[in-house]
Design a protein around this nucleic acid. Structure first.
Length: 768
DNA sequence: TGGGGCCGGGG
DNA sequence: GTGTACGGCCCCA
């Protein structure tokens, strides 16, 4: 028997000699790939039924009956102990037995995938180092394949030297996304540590394909990074390859890529990372483009302006430019992964979701897998995934703001309000009840209470995550920034925080295994109580309340009184609040969730048009400039002059089309829309041309001149004619409103704003 | 003129 | 495919 240390990067189920077996994919300390086959994993399900009846049902299928073992066991389920009948044995038999029994009894853990169960019950979380004992065997033509004998968690902090290759493609995009039937591949680009390589189509598309596949195999990467691989490029490549007679055999084993769950593509033995899936989860990146990601990470802008939708045009008109753009893309994809790798790997390592899936999983499923690991560790049976009716509930409290321009306003924030409430009151799906009783702390107003005599699973986990984060942060102070462990631990503490903050929302999500509307509702109720009590105390202290939202209070600044309030919160409420910032000036509109302020020379706009992608960039910039003027000058200043200059430039046709584009997302299948609106009408027109308009697609449009409602005059930005822009619409419905929004609170009327806009340039009839 | 559909971003 | 609260646009009756 041999021994070694390996970093496990994936856990899959493969057929080995006709039997479903677990395969662990690992790298040794030199970065050499190994596979470990574990054919001996015993699967199980729990059946809620007495052993005799379970046995009776099973014995009707004698073959199956002989292949599984049946035993009585007591397990915890949602905090209480119950007797279960456990069926165990080889995975295929347990699955078949489970399905059979499911017709008569409630069967638990039948809906947990085998590879997940392996991770849960063997405690083998991916993206960590393990001490492994093994014997060599032959499998799949793999150079280093072994039979797994023993595995235990190691204690190394860090990663092996991962071989990473970024790939990007320029296919023809006649209809929004490449059609494998008609759209050829023009070019590809590949980036690795060795540098960049690009290929262009010459005489034969087949050669280009072959060239790309060969290059990839030559590099033999552990990780292939793309931007939109799962959504667009792998499906295209696979089918297009089939058409031209070349299989996409870029895996280690199996060679060919294949589609697995959730629109994810598996590349045998390699890690498929689609950075678009990461970007999708970053709310502050509005259009989810690679350009935005680059800017966010501090990477260079593209050297030439490009757009995947323009690949056809670029290929016809300027191939060098296309290759230059593609080269920037692939380098940016590679370097973005370098910067994000620690966060992605730590999300995998902490939750237990293999790297290949961790970005494809929603944040609900990420936190859920973490909860499953912990639940199994505590001997809990995993609740089933069931589909439930969506029933919403009351959320946070938002105060009516005091309209106007204020000076010296302090913002007080509760620290992790919902996680703290869950911990303080022990709120968890299995501790919340609608019945009064001993050891039940009851809240009459919502008719719900909490068992105080048993430890709730979710609050315990939230507390643990917060503790782990604190520990990680403390250990950071002892590490120099250059130490390779620094980035690992730093990423880990961020992941702990993200998970801790997600648990409340997870609990209120109807698809959650640990769903509890009552528990979620109780959390928000107690949040409202906390803020209300704090407001009362603030008033008693003579602090004027100007605004508040969910877990924050804006009050007239007063150092002593705020200090007193904060200690009251800590002592009387057992919560933590802090003085977040003090606005030197702040403008409140009469609307909730919309304000602008300045502190430490930082101008900050919240909830206003400036932040919204469904307003054109030009109007957003105007609003920022006007708000800054008011906040810096402490009054109207030259605001109206700013408005006038913006309007003049637009009238003179000096504003680039890009700054006039309005972006909106398609949120459901097109035929489900009941209304006519600009972005839907544009999407319908694109669909008529043959574009595939899926959920999540961004539609950028401008409003052109003409008669009738604007939805009839909205034109896709790629088809727009700059000379046909409806200047009147932009002045009246974009520039004036966005400027007026921040001027109205200081007493500037709509009429005043309109006047400078209208009587600038050529006068009223030019655009009305 | 007001209500419904829809969207996006705040905490 | 984590939660709710909210404002504001456009369309249509």
């Amino acid at each position: 028997m041999k021994k070694g240390v390996f970093w496990i990067y994936d856990v899959t189920v493969e057929e080995v000699r006709g039997k479903d077996s677990i395969v662990l994919w690992g790298l040794d300390e030199d970065g050499v790939p190994h596979v470990f086959i574990d054919s001996g994993f015993t699967d199980h399900v729990y059946v809620a039924g007495d052993p005799d009846s379970v046995e009776k049902v099973l014995s009707e299928n004698p073959i199956l009956y002989r292949r599984v073992s049946i035993s009585n066991t007591v397990r915890r389920f949602l905090g209480r102990e119950y007797p279960f009948t456990m069926i165990s044995g080889d995975p295929a038999s347990v699955r078949d037995a489970g399905r059979l029994l499911n017709r008569f009894f409630e069967v638990f853990e039948l809906d947990v995938r085998l590879s997940q169960k392996y991770i849960l019950y063997k405690g083998v979380k991916p993206s960590r180092w393990y001490n492994i004992e093994y014997e060599d065997i032959q499998w799949g033509g793999w150079r280093y394949s072994h039979r797994l004998m023993n595995i235990s968690l190691g204690d190394v902090i860090g990663y092996p030297d991962l071989k990473v290759v970024a790939v990007d493609l320029a296919p023809s995009l006649s209809l929004g996304e490449p059609d494998p039937d008609g759209d050829p591949l023009y070019a590809y680009a590949l980036y690795s540590k060795e540098g960049i390589y690009t290929g262009e189509r010459g005489e034969s598309e087949y050669r280009l394909f072959k060239d790309m596949v060969d290059r990839l195999l030559e590099n033999d990467p552990d990780v292939i990074v793309t931007f939109m691989g799962n959504r667009v490029y792998y499906p295209y490549l696979r089918e297009r390859g089939g058409k031209i007679g070349l299989k996409l055999g870029i895996g280690r084993y199996p060679k060919e890529i294949y589609q697995s769950v959730l629109g994810h593509y598996s590349i045998g033995g390699r890690i498929n990372i689609d950075l678009y899936e990461y970007v999708d989860g970053l709310p502050f990146l509005q259009l989810k483009t690679l350009e935005e990601l680059a800017r966010y990470l501090g990477l260079p802008d593209p050297p030439v302006k490009g757009d995947p939708y323009l690949y056809d045009r670029m290929w016809m008109e300027d191939r060098d430019k296309l290759i230059e753009y593609l080269s920037w893309r692939v380098e940016t994809i590679y370097k973005s992964f370098e910067r994000l790798a620690h966060d992605i790997i730590e999300m995998s390592s902490v939750t237990g979701i293999p790297l290949d899936y961790v970005l494809t999983s929603s944040s609900g499923r990420q936190v859920e897998f973490y909860i499953m690991c912990e639940a199994v560790g505590r001997g809990e049976v995993i609740p089933p995934q069931v589909s439930r009716e969506v029933r919403s509930y009351q959320g946070g409290m938002v105060l009516e703001p005091v309209k106007g321009l204020h000076r010296g306003v302090a913002v007080i924030d509760f620290k992790s309000m919902y996680p703290s409430i869950m911990i303080k009151y022990n709120i968890s799906p299995e501790t919340v009840t609608d019945r009064r009783g001993d050891n039940v702390e009851f809240f009459e107003e919502v008719g719900l209470g909490v068992h105080r005599d048993r430890e709730g699973l979710l609050p315990t986990l939230v507390e643990k995550l917060i503790r782990l984060r604190d520990e990680a942060r403390r250990s950071l102070t002892g590490l120099p920034r250059e130490d390779p462990r620094f980035k690992v631990v730093d990423a880990r503490q961020r992941i702990y925080k993200i998970l801790a903050n997600t648990v409340y929302g997870y609990m209120g999500w109807p698809s959650a295994r640990w769903y509890s509307r009552q528990a979620a509702l109780l959390v928000t109720y107690l949040g409202r109580q906390v803020i209300t009590a704090t407001m009362d105390k603030a008033s008693k202290l003579g602090l004027e309340i100007i605004y508040g939202d969910t877990d924050s209070l804006f009050v007239r600044h007063n150092v002593e009184k705020i200090g007193e309030l904060l200690s009251w919160v800590e002592n009387e409420l057992g919560m933590e609040a802090k003085l977040e910032k003090v606005y030197k000036r702040v403008i409140f509109t009469s609307a909730k969730k919309r304000y602008a302020g300045i502190y430490d020379s930082v101008v900050e706009l919240v909830g206003l048009e400036y932040l919204r992608r469904d307003w054109c960039r030009y109007a957003r910039n105007l609003q920022y400039d006007v708000a800054s003027e008011v906040l810096v000058m402490g009054g109207v200043g030259d605001s109206l002059g700013i408005v006038k200059r913006y309007v003049d430039r637009l009238r003179r046709g000096e504003v680039p089309l890009d700054d006039l584009v309005i972006w909106e997302q398609i949120s459901k299948p097109l035929d489900e829309y009941k209304v006519n609106s600009p972005h839907i009408e544009v999407a319908r027109k694109l669909a008529m041309k043959g574009w595939k308009i899926r959920r999540g697609v961004f539609i950028g449009y401008v409003i052109q001149k003409g008669d009738g409602p604007i939805y009839t005059r909205a034109v896709h930005y790629l088809d727009a004619d700059p000379s046909l822009i409806d200047v009147g619409y932009y002045v009246k419905h974009q520039l004036i409103p966005s400027a007026h929004r921040v001027l109205e609170p200081i007493g500037v009327s709509r009429k005043e704003v309109e006047n400078v806009a209208l009587y600038s340039g050529r006068g009223l009839d030019a655009f009305m």
